[in-house]
Nucleic acid binder design. Structure first.
Lengths: 126, 126
DNA sequence: CAGTATCCGTGGCGATACTG
DNA sequence: CAGTATCGCCACGGATACTG
């Protein structure tokens, strides 16, 4: 589980923002996926979550900790090291996320096509 | 499918707002459930969606129509009658919603308890 | 009955700067 | 490295009033 996270694990071209559902806050679902393979450090999480700011990542992790989805472990070293790990409860979300991804694979293209068709009918100029 | 919708089908005491996931916008998931049993009229939908305003309901239904989740049928009568019905695509969300509800039944109590415990540890006074 | 029009409060999220 | 502190935008959605 020491393999580094793939910086491209969340393809910027993936229209996931069009999904008709969301896990927790904007980043929660992606964080859960990042932690699937084992504990990860704060800075390690920032890599695939391209563009997330420290503030928002910390904020999201605090909320997840509060809800018992992750544990936060501080190692008294220098420089400091902090690791986040999924709890069994957080891990239980993985099945739900898998279901959501399965739905997307199967139905999201149809949704996007319906949207384009609708928009084209409303404004044929573009 | 002519049976009226149960005004209490969404229990105000149900902590569904604490769910770590959401289907579409705030009301989308509930609307899908309301339409599960067949077509419903605009005013009919407002009953179980206690407190939703006409504006927001119309807005949400427009977005769902755009994404191909529901169809909108106007009957040229007086007074006007408009019916909304799930498309096969919209109906495909039902399995996902069922999965979300199953997760909630099984894990939401643990999440809420973790939250209470965390809050109590942070501020023992309350 | 089935909406539309207008106004507006709140919160989620990002940008930037700073720190033990 | 792993955050916190501030500032601010703006989209979501609620309140109210009006209409074919």
């Amino acid at each position: 589980m020491a393999a580094p996270l793939d910086p491209q694990m969340f393809d910027p071209m993936c229209p996931s923002s069009a999904l008709p559902f969301q896990i927790g806050d904007k980043w929660t679902g992606m964080i859960v996926l990042c932690l699937e393979g084992g504990p990860r450090r704060f800075g390690e999480l920032k890599v695939p979550l391209h563009g997330i700011t420290s503030k928002v990542l910390a904020q999201t992790l605090r909320a997840m900790e509060r809800d018992g989805l992750v544990t936060r472990t501080v190692y008294e070293e220098n420089p400091p090291r902090v690791e986040y790990e999924l709890t069994p409860l957080g891990r239980s979300l993985l099945t739900l996320i898998a279901a959501a991804r399965a739905w997307s694979r199967e139905h999201l293209p149809a949704l996007l096509q319906a949207r384009r068709a609708h928009d084209a009918a409303a404004d044929p100029s573009r």
